[in-house]
Amino acid sequence: MPSADAQEPKTASHFKELVSFRLNMLASHWSRLAAESNQRDFELDPREWRILGMLGANAPMSLQGLAREVNIDKSLASRAVSLMIDRGLLQRGADQSDGRGVQLSLTAKGKQLYRKVFPKAVKRNEELLSVLSSQEREVFDRALDLLTAHAHETLARERAKAAKPKRKPGAVIAAD
C-alpha cells in the first residue's frame, strides 16, 4: 500500500492540462521573447538564430544535417542560409568526404555575431530557470531528456507502423 505522502499522478482532465500544450505554451512565450530581442538587437529572425547558433557550436555542417538539427524544413533552411550568405554571415565550403557535397560554416562576421548573441541567449536561459532551485533544475533537465527520448522513440514507432502495408478486411494472402 502506498504511503500517505505518495500521490497518484494527475491525469489531464482538459486540453490545457496536456503536457504537450503546456510545453508548447512555455516554448512559445520564451521563443517570442528571444525572437523579439534577437530581431531588435541583431536583426536575426528565429530561423536565422537557430542556424547561427547551431553552426556556432557545430560547424561545418551540411544543409540537410543543419535543417534536421534545428528542426526546420530543408527548403526553408535553404532560403535562410542563402540570405545569411548574402549578409556575409555564412559561407559554403567543399565537403572533404563527398566531392559533390557542401558544408556550411560561419564567416568571421558570423562568428563575431554569434559571440554577441549567444551570451544573451544564455542570460535568457538562466532567467527562465531562475525560478527553480538547483535540485528542481536537475530534475527538470533529466525529465526533459527522458521525455524527449521517449517522444523520439514513440514517433519512430508510429511512423514504422504507418509505413506497413495495410490489408483490407477479408483479403486473402497468397501462399508461395
Rank of each mutant, 00 (worst) to 15 (best):
M1S: 14
D5L: 09
D5T: 03
D5R: 08
A6D: 09
Q7D: 06
E8P: 01
K10P: 00
H14T: 07
R22P: 01
R22Q: 15
L23W: 04
L23I: 03
L23R: 13
A27W: 03
H29E: 11
R32A: 12
R32M: 13
L33H: 11
L33T: 11
L33Q: 12
A35R: 10
E36P: 00
E36H: 12
S37C: 09
S37E: 15
N38W: 10
R40D: 14
R40I: 03
D41M: 12
D41P: 00
F42M: 06
E43A: 14
L44K: 05
L44C: 07
D45P: 02
W49E: 11
R50W: 00
I51A: 02
G56L: 07
A57L: 15
M61V: 02
G65W: 02
E69R: 11
V70G: 02
V70C: 01
I72R: 01
K74A: 08
L76A: 04
A77P: 01
S78M: 01
S78F: 01
V81N: 02
S82A: 15
S82C: 00
D86C: 04
R92G: 07
G93M: 15
Q96T: 13
S97G: 04
G99I: 06
R100H: 14
G101T: 09
V102P: 00
V102H: 08
Q103E: 12
S105T: 07
L106Q: 04
L106Y: 04
L106E: 05
L106S: 03
A108Y: 06
K109A: 12
G110D: 03
Q112A: 13
Y114V: 01
Y114K: 03
V117G: 06
F118I: 08
F118P: 00
K120T: 08
K120N: 05
K120S: 07
A121K: 03
A121L: 12
V122R: 09
N125I: 00
N125T: 08
N125L: 10
L129F: 14
L129N: 12
V131T: 10
V131N: 05
L132C: 11
S133L: 06
S133E: 05
S134I: 06
S134W: 04
R137E: 07
E138N: 04
D141E: 11
D141T: 13
D141L: 07
D141F: 11
R142Y: 04
R142A: 11
R142Q: 14
A143W: 12
D145E: 15
L146G: 04
L146Y: 13
T148V: 09
T148A: 13
A151Y: 07
H152L: 06
E153W: 09
T154C: 05
T154I: 04
L155Q: 10
R157K: 12
R159S: 07
A160M: 09
A162R: 15
A162G: 12
A163T: 02
K164E: 15
K164M: 14
K166S: 10
K168Q: 11
G170H: 06
I173K: 15
A174T: 07
D176A: 05
